[in-house]
Amino acid sequence: MESTPTPEPRRTVDVASLKALAHPLRVRILDIISQLGPQTSGTLAEILGESTGSTSYHLRQLAKHDFLREVEGRGSARERWWDRPRGSLQIVTRELADNPATSEAAQLVSREFEYRRAAALADFMDHGWLQESREWSEAATVSTTNIRLTAAQLAEVSERLEAFAMDLVNEIRNRGELAGARPVQIHLNAFPLAAGRTTGAATQPEEKP
């Protein structure tokens, strides 16, 4: 008998948590850990070019609002490992974006995540097709479909595509990680992230992971 895939937990971020996340460095830390898995203040400092004191402070703030958790049984009192709880995050809702008390925070968080998504795709488009091995470049897809829809039809497409994607991702996750696995980012595009580093981590000009 086949086992039923475990449903992916889903969390909608509240006002206090959104305001706590509304710092560019915290968004970047959350995104890096989402991409690469558990990190320490030291490994993040190296990736981001920040001090360990700074990354340690922001890690604690993210953990305070349950964006991150300490990895039990790994590290020491002086070197703590942090990971994301399993599940999806709905970072910005229409209510938060329309609320004058949270609109600025919602805009900052949404803009920062969008910048990082765009940077990851741009990096793959500029380098991935030619620099990745044939195995990885042929496994990736970057596709666009144009169609005229009503708002109700668009909602149906969005809901069904997201449901299908999450069912497929959960099914694969539940099989366990295989040798040779590496970070992959899926929008409706699906492509390997730049090997050995994260995209969008460098200093940049002045939504839902």
Rank of each mutant, 00 (worst) to 15 (best):
E79C: 09
W81S: 09
W81K: 14
W82S: 06
D83Q: 14
R84T: 00
P85W: 01
G87W: 14
G87T: 12
Q90H: 15
T93K: 13
N99L: 13
P100N: 00
A101C: 14
T102R: 06
S103P: 15
S103I: 15
S103M: 14
S103K: 11
A105P: 04
A105F: 07
A106T: 11
A106H: 06
L108V: 00
V109I: 03
V109M: 00
V109K: 00
V109G: 01
R111F: 10
E112W: 13
E114T: 12
Y115C: 02
R116I: 02
A118D: 10
A118F: 10
A118K: 05
A119D: 11
A119S: 12
L121P: 02
L121M: 07
A122G: 06
D123A: 08
D123P: 08
F124K: 03
M125P: 02
H127I: 00
H127M: 06
H127Q: 11
G128P: 06
R134L: 07
E135F: 07
W136L: 04
W136Q: 07
W136R: 01
S137A: 12
E138A: 10
A139F: 13
A140C: 05
T141R: 13
T144M: 02
I147P: 12
T150G: 06
A151W: 15
L154T: 14
L154M: 08
A155L: 13
E156R: 13
V157Q: 11
S158K: 09
S158V: 07
E159N: 07
E159T: 13
R160F: 15
L161Q: 07
L161E: 10
E162L: 10
E162Y: 04
A163P: 11
A163H: 08
F164I: 08
A165G: 09
A165K: 08
M166Q: 14
M166K: 05
D167G: 10
L168P: 09
L168E: 15
V169D: 03
V169N: 11
E171S: 05
E171C: 13
I172S: 00
R173P: 09
R173C: 06
N174L: 02
E177D: 11
G180I: 12
G180Q: 12
G180H: 14
R182E: 08
R182T: 13
P183V: 04
P183W: 04
V184T: 09
V184A: 11
V184P: 02
